[in-house]
Design a protein around this nucleic acid. Structure first.
Lengths: 230, 230
DNA sequence: CAATTTATTAAACGCATAGTTAATATGCAC
DNA sequence: GTGCATATTAACTATGCGTTTAATAAATTG
């Protein structure tokens, strides 16, 4: 509509034609909590397209609203991203960390790590893909945030625990305690993230979460010298 | 006459000597082959930014030329990408595959896999990052190409070999042959791809390629039940 | 050394898409 | 009802993409 000088609302309403598209203005019904739905839509887009490649319009389309509404709720795209990270991503990482019995035995710690990742993936299937793209990939949008805030706590605590276990002879020598942390992630997060790939060229309907966990534990128990081998 | 417009280039003369400089017009003599340099520039951008996010202008900037020159050499952006894949990426994957002794003993195969990834990463440090972003990530630009063309040969051949080894009692039961393929990649490619991360919060100047390889082999030898008799 | 071919750039085109702003219909308090 | 706050959209402006065209200078050819 070209801008008339001072179009009053009443006049425009009188000349309004019935439209299919929603007109601006407050909706009739009291909308259910929209904000969490917007966060979920944003997260879905982040997972599917990557954070950097996700446009405000894509999120709006996903949620069935206009980009301007996202601006209304969250300000700009950066603040929206921060909200998603703070309210959707970081709690997941934190929940995993709190599940690790760092003060218990080594075998229990390893088992809890593997089971913890399995539980995390079961509850939040989107996590591995997001983590790979936004943390593992260089230039990932979550690298700094997640890494500087959480990762030093988990990997360094694990490495320290492994050093102690090795000194006590519980952990096989020949393993590097720091690299063992990396190996643990490679044996858990990586299979989860690549599941869509290997499921596409392996007949793998029989592989569920417990099969995967038992395979991983079988490899680790023996590989770390935990089983009962002297 | 590099391909630019109509696909009627019947006569395939050898490549000319290109050159780069500032003002328009043909540059002075003694130019090194420009085309490989353009491919390298494109690859560098793909690795750093991701293929989808890499603009033709960014590649041109990286190579110190104009976007129009890329069009002169490769036609459009899609053809440039195909050239990079065919001449830079696929040969690396193929070289790795040819290094695997699928007909030898199991221990030798495992060792060759680990050493092969180490050699690949040593020769092409950009590979893990590219592979993670473009193959592992959903929507990655190389997923279809690499996967449908090469990956079924390698993983399925490995899995078949592991099935046989397990039947012969050489490979510990309790391991899934298919998941073992995934574990192998998780223990090799993943640490390589995440090296920038774990090096940033571990003091790891003492960890070089051989330390990493020995750690991995120590874990695998025992974990798969290959080493000395338990 | 003139004509032609080859390699390169500058500039512009058309298009898509980005994030934001201004307008506006509804709900609610008096 | 009247006025203000809330929730929502249409429209705008900016930018940047890939591509193309025309200009131009060196190389090559005769």
């Amino acid at each position: 509509m070209p801008i008339a000088k001072k179009p009053t609302a009443v006049h425009r309403k009188a000349t309004r034609k019935p439209r299919k598209r929603r007109a601006p203005g407050r909706p009739a019904a009291a909308s259910p909590e929209l904000r969490p739905r917007l966060l979920d839509a944003a997260l879905a887009c982040y997972v599917r397209e990557g954070i950097a490649a996700t446009t405000l319009r894509a999120i709006a389309r996903e949620a069935g609203v206009t980009p301007a509404l996202l601006h209304y709720y969250f300000g700009d795209a950066v603040q929206l991203r921060q909200a998603v990270v703070a309210e959707r991503v970081l709690p997941v990482v934190d929940g995993f960390r709190s599940m690790l019995p760092l003060d218990g035995g080594l075998a229990e710690l390893i088992a809890a790590f593997v089971a913890g990742i399995a539980a995390l993936v079961g509850a939040h299937p989107w996590f591995p893909a997001l983590w790979v793209r936004e943390v593992l990939c260089e230039g990932g949008a979550l690298r700094e945030i997640v890494l500087r805030q959480f990762a030093p706590q988990i990997p360094q605590a694990l490495a320290a625990r492994f050093v102690r276990a090795q000194r006590e002879g519980v952990l096989a020598s020949g393993l590097d305690p720091r690299l063992l942390v990396v190996s643990l992630m490679g044996l858990t997060l990586f299979p989860a993230a690549s599941a869509p790939i290997w499921r596409s060229f392996f007949a793998s309907d029989d592989i569920d979460a417990s099969v995967l966990r038992e395979h991983t534990m079988a490899l680790l128990d023996r590989g770390l010298g935990l089983g009962g081998k002297p």
